[in-house]
Amino acid sequence: MVRPLGFLVGLGFITALVLAIFTTPLSNEENVALSFHKHPRHLKLASDGLVPHWDKAQLQRGMQVYKEVCSACHSLNLVAFRNIEDLGYTEGQVKTFAKGFQVPSINPDTGEVATRDGAPSDHFPAPYLNEVAARAANNNALPPDLSLITKAREGGKNYVYSLLTGYQNPPANLPAELRPSTGLHYNPYFANLNLAMAKPLSDNQVTYADGTKASVDQMAKDVSAFLVWTAEPKLVTRVQVGWATFFFLLIFTVLAYLSYRNIWADKKH
């Protein structure tokens, strides 16, 4: 009984699928935008690979770029000032750095909205009060929070780096409907080619304390490295713990294998 019924049910599905095959056009709608879209360029960082470390000087420069350029529009909600001790700052430096920010607070006497000096336990304050304010100030585009950006985009750090360095004039053969309209900017690394963010970096926009030349490429690299850290501050620890665990388990597995062979030595199987 199961087999004849199953046969009929199977026939039903197969017929529906065969009909679906013959009614689905075999050619795709041409996606012109796709042919102009570019894959992110590779960015090599110290935190890559299986023996990663943090290039603290680079992370510090990256944070400077974030603070002086990106933070005008982009929040960094998940990062607290205390976290930047990871970048090689001392407790005192962190305190001073935090004091340089005004964070939202409440006036203790009146209960009104106020600000106060930042403390290490505070997070980087957001540039806008809320999403509506952010959109209102940015031509209805919402600058995303950058804390997780290198984990939240296909291509990660490569994408961020490519996007920051990828602004260019639209190619001559770009169809009119793909050309940037008012308030948009052409960038082949962006999914639909035109994004609301204007080219954020220009040469010597920041002055690095360590004397590194602040070219667009250098700043893009540095801030991408910094955003790799903000997205996963435990990355280096994670891989290091991983190796210790892996080697321990490797020894265990070898022992377990020998033990298995040993116990089965007298049994054919």
């Binding site: 321990f248 265990f252 377990a256 020998l258």
Partner: peptide, 13 residues
């Protein structure tokens, strides 16, 4: 000798 391996494996676990 074989017992030793078993004990070592269990200890590691």
């Amino acid at each position: 000798r074989r017992d030793f391996i078993n004990i070592a494996a269990v200890s590691f676990a």
